[in-house]
Simulated scan of single mutants.
Amino acid sequence: MGRVRVAGFAVSIDGFGAGPEQSLEHPMGKGGKDLHQWFYPTRAFRSMIGKDGGTEDRFASAAMAGFGAFILGRNMFGPAGDDWGGPDWKGWWGDNPPYHAPTFILSHHARAPIVMDGGTTFHFVTDGIEAALAQAKAAAGDLDVKIGGGVSTVQQYLKARAIDELHLVQSPIVLGRGENLFVGIDLPSLGYRVTEVVPTGLATHLVLSR
């Protein structure tokens, strides 16, 4: 059985994992794209968008590797609201999302699964985080399950003590507003400790394990 991991989850210096006022224009909230400046130059990111080249970064490569299933919060799939961004909405990523594995979306609104190019199928789970995790583990087999975000989803799985490893990327920006990962979260009490710190020119990588 694989592990349950968060990998490549970027936060600002003041702890925000997304900016305020998410919208079609600002999927990560205002200022949220700046959290990922460390990722954009890497070979891993460029290959995701069909481009060659890029820098080598082991954390970027590991952020999407070794996973047999993914779990995402509702807003990671589409803008908030009952219409899912419209009747033809199939996610933020186009016809070939970067997951290439079964991907479970936490939601209060039922929807039939969506089969995408490249091996991604979106499944919409309406009966809670435990049900989503059980389905994801069954789909992943011996591979890991990635809790892909957003902030609320990571918080829920942290509080449930379901995450084995948490890789945070502290980006050198401040957002001031948005969704703060650490509000209401006592990581030491939940059993997490820092096991690796790697500073780079664009961010500091922090790995916490239980």
Rank of each mutant, 00 (worst) to 15 (best):
R3S: 14
R5V: 11
F9D: 02
F9W: 10
G17P: 11
A18P: 10
S23F: 05
S23Q: 05
G29R: 01
R43C: 04
A44T: 08
F45Q: 03
S47H: 13
M48H: 08
I49D: 09
G50M: 09
K51L: 15
D52L: 12
E56Y: 11
D57A: 02
F59R: 10
A69C: 04
F70I: 00
G73Q: 03
G73W: 04
R74Y: 03
M76D: 15
F77Y: 15
G78P: 05
W84H: 12
G86F: 06
W89I: 07
N96R: 15
H100N: 11
H100A: 14
P102K: 06
S107D: 09
H108W: 02
H109S: 09
H109F: 12
P113L: 10
D117L: 13
G119L: 02
V125A: 11
D127C: 07
G128C: 08
L133I: 00
L133A: 09
A139D: 08
A139E: 07
A139K: 02
L143T: 01
Q155D: 07
Y157C: 07
Y157H: 15
Y157M: 14
L158M: 07
I163C: 10
E165N: 03
L168G: 04
Q170T: 08
S171N: 09
P172K: 01
P172D: 02
P172H: 01
F182M: 14
F182V: 04
S189R: 15
G191P: 12
Y192G: 08
V194L: 14
V194Y: 01
T195P: 00
T195L: 03
V198Y: 06
H205N: 12
H205S: 04
S209N: 10
R210L: 04
